[in-house]
């Protein structure tokens, strides 16, 4: 785990979440989940779970109402484990597959959150509905976009451009 990348990812998730909230977008992708998914790449389960732990804790501190510390830690650790396990079982090459995994993860998280809230707060079991689906789609889109961006050989392209300028 590269600490700098980890910190940058975490900071990006926090800032992005707050930034998207500042522009009053009715629905936004789950950037913390993207952060976890990014660290789950390669199938490192412990790393994914540790990332889920940190991200979930931070998300709980920043977003969840008080007295529910651990709600997102639960879901993010679970998703980190599931995503890392999926990475080891399936070869996720296409960005569409990554998008599908992320969408499914968002839906699983919504379901888990509904379950936990119903269990601990006595609230009616509501898995999220349309809002969850939209969020899943947005997250999947963001995830696939990030996957594409990550797979682009940026260094080689910069080096080639540098070489062309030199010529």
């Amino acid at each position: 785990m590269k600490p700098l990348r980890f910190a940058a990812g975490l900071a990006g998730a926090v800032l992005g979440t707050f930034g998207l909230g500042a522009v009053s977008i009715p629905s936004s992708p789950d950037l913390f989940l993207l952060f976890v998914a990014d660290n789950a790449r390669g199938g490192t389960v412990y790393r994914a779970m540790a990332t889920g732990l940190v991200a979930g804790l931070l998300e709980d501190l920043l977003r969840t109402p008080p007295r529910l510390l651990g709600l997102h830690v639960f879901t993010k650790v679970l998703l980190g484990y599931l995503l890392a396990t999926a990475e080891t079982r399936f070869v996720v090459e296409k960005s569409s597959w990554a998008a599908g995994l992320l969408a499914g993860a968002v839906l699983v998280e919504s379901l888990a959150l509904a379950l936990l809230l119903s269990l601990f707060r006595g609230e009616p079991l509501h898995w999220g509905g349309q809002e969850a689906v939209v969020r899943a789609l947005l997250t999947a889109a963001a995830g696939s976009a990030l996957a594409v961006l990550v797979r682009i050989p940026w260094r080689a392209r910069f080096a080639a451009r540098r070489r062309r300028r030199v010529r």
């Binding site: 732990l53 007295r67 510390l69 651990g70 936990l116 707060r121």
Partner: peptide, 22 residues
């Protein structure tokens, strides 16, 4: 071991949440 770690972490979350329930 991974599964056990997962269960442990999730159990910790459940415990933490249950402690905060009104």
């Amino acid at each position: 071991r991974r599964l056990a770690t997962l269960v442990l972490l999730l159990s910790g979350c459940v415990v933490a949440l249950s402690l905060q329930v009104r």
